[in-house]
Amino acid sequence: MTQPLLQVKGLTKRFKDRTVVRDVAFSIAEGSCAALLGPNGAGKTTTISMLAGLLQPTSGSIQLLDQSKPVTDRRMFIGYLPQMPVFYPWMTGREFLRYAAELAGLAGRDAVLKTDEWLENVGLQHAASRRIGGYSGGMKQRLGLAQALIHRPKLLILDEPVSALDPAGRKDVLNLLQRIRLETTVLFSTHVLHDAEEICDEILMIREGEIALQGKLDQIRREYSEPVIRIEVGGDPVSLKWMASISSKAFVRQAEITGNRARLTVTDVEKASFELMADAVSHQVAFRKFESGQSTLEDLFLKVVQA
């Protein structure tokens, strides 16, 4: 299961004099689910387009391995769903899906069977005979997933699959992805950490065209988590004055204080908690919230993005 399926080395894309993706390298193991995570404009779509074979890299290599041997036309093994899937509005859902199946190499009868199977898998069997022009965003996304998966690709590549959807559509697609990821290796891009955490086990954080951080999700969580204390106090002058003073405590490694709220990275949570509380009591500070724990991935993500 740990065989690499996709190997990317030194991937770079320049448009005129702007380098959008710079020396990106990673590999995706067979059976895993990786999220390409980064803020808007970080180069996610450009990277994904190169992987999907739509954009020629300026330099670098992309290899898809089938039985440990690199393939010549990787499009055969890839299913791709663009950010905003667009279809022929004059086709019906069934017609498009069958067209996609046949383009991917499925023969006549097989294409018909698979079309019906996937229409049902994504819950579009009742809308199958309607023109795509009348589909909602969520329906298009699901049809897009079906066309990407109909030829049983080894790698499914999705560009921001849930970003543009309403909560209901988002849930539908995420549930589908949960199921798909049991059978197919998945790589998807997103700017929402939560979506990545929900289905993926690996993340690639990308910032300004470069990989900033990559690895297994739980490993990253373990490695980068730091003891953190979050405090919120009342708005009275005494409390606020106390708040302003706490960053100078010896156990505080890093403090972010905004008004009556503070987030402290500390050396030792327990010791820090006791001291802070004792100090607060002696100063008659009104606590509203006191929370001690570990930093989350969200914190790490923000740190990486804003660095």
Partner: peptide, 13 residues
């Protein structure tokens, strides 16, 4: 222009 080509050309065509 519309973007359908992205789906068409990511298939082995």
């Amino acid at each position: 222009q519309s973007g359908v080509s992205q789906m068409i050309f990511s298939k082995p065509v």
